[in-house]
Design a protein around this nucleic acid. Structure first.
Lengths: 196, 196
DNA sequence: AACACTATTATTAGGTG
DNA sequence: CCACCTAATAATAGTGT
């Protein structure tokens, strides 16, 4: 009972290394987060749902009025699309090819978005303008009935952009704190827990 | 300009009455919440998903690495407990896979917009708000048969956002302070405490 | 209506029991 | 793991612009 306690230190915003400390911090901050959420609900009459997975994979959730209903609502709203037999009332299979196209497109978009997500966090200068402009020209074209080959054009265009972004990202190498940056294209982890 | 500003008052934890004030508080606190969540992810390597519905019914979401996947994981786990026995090829999800691409695309757009909205609060001025509003009608529309050109619209919107993000990133030059979205691991890790 | 400011409260890192 | 403590940082209510 000698030590007069230190008060907090300024936090450096990177992953905590010490395991016990991480556990404590996770617990404290998780509770803090849930409290904030609770206050938001009370003060503003908001409806919220939160799920947090600990590094160990354990799930914690908060919800007002209820986690699952709120999440369901959100996901349902986001996934209202049902194409299936939609367009002409024809049974499912005629649309098969279209879906393949969309799925492909979707994958590329996902990659693009993810990489962009990573990139933007480091807010680096970034010379994509001409690329963007070129694509913009393509994308903003009046699209009445976009057909397959046009979709394909778009996809190719995006793929090019993606490649440029990958190159840019790999050339980045920010001097500071970038040690933990891992590109999507090589998911292999370098750390110990590597089992997946 | 005499008044030297009052500082905050102690909050009374009940629903705010004044409408305009509620809106401001909701916005501030929502962003605070997302920031906290972001810090939790960065510091502890947690995986989180948040959805908040404003009193007006508008959805805002945050996710690391992704709202949809994290929520799906949580809900799937939760429903696994209920289902349990039906491991055989029960046709619960008939054509689900055919629609997954579309669903994902749509959700990603939604997530992207929302996260961007959250992120911009910490970053420099950037007005893409109207963007989100503009497109919301599409997402919330009860879409029975979303045709290709509508899908295209959605995608175009996303790409516009992307371009804006690129542009913004270019002008940004701010060093750090924000969490980094590091990678996409869900790592089971050795469950030292895995069970509830 | 969003942004800047700041006094004040709230959260929390690092301890101890 | 939990509860409590304290000093320091972080969030934000109220205000101004």
């Amino acid at each position: 009972m000698e030590k007069k306690t230190q008060g907090r230190k300024k936090i450096d915003m990177e992953k905590i290394k010490r395991k016990d400390y991480l556990q404590v911090t996770f617990s404290k901050r998780r509770n803090g987060l849930f409290k904030k959420a609770s206050e938001l609900c009370t003060l503003c009459g908001a409806e919220t749902a939160i799920v947090v997975y600990s590094p160990a994979g354990k799930a914690f959730s908060f919800g007002h009025p209820c986690v699952e209903s709120t999440m369901d609502k959100f996901l349902a709203t986001a996934s209202l699309i049902e194409i299936g037999e939609s367009s002409r009332g024809v049974p499912s299979f005629p649309d098969y090819h279209r879906n393949i196209g969309i799925n492909k497109l979707n994958r590329h978009i996902n990659e693009l978005v993810n990489q962009l997500e990573a990139e933007k966090k480091y807010g680096e200068s970034f010379t994509q303008m001409e690329m963007a402009n070129k694509d913009q020209f393509l994308w903003n074209k009046p699209i009445k009935n976009l057909e397959f080959h046009e979709l394909e054009q778009l996809r190719v265009s995006m793929e090019e952009l993606k490649i440029k972004m990958v190159n840019r990202t790999e050339g980045l190498k920010r001097a500071s704190m970038l040690s933990s940056f891992i590109d999507i294209n090589q998911v292999g982890r370098t750390e110990d827990e590597g089992v997946q």
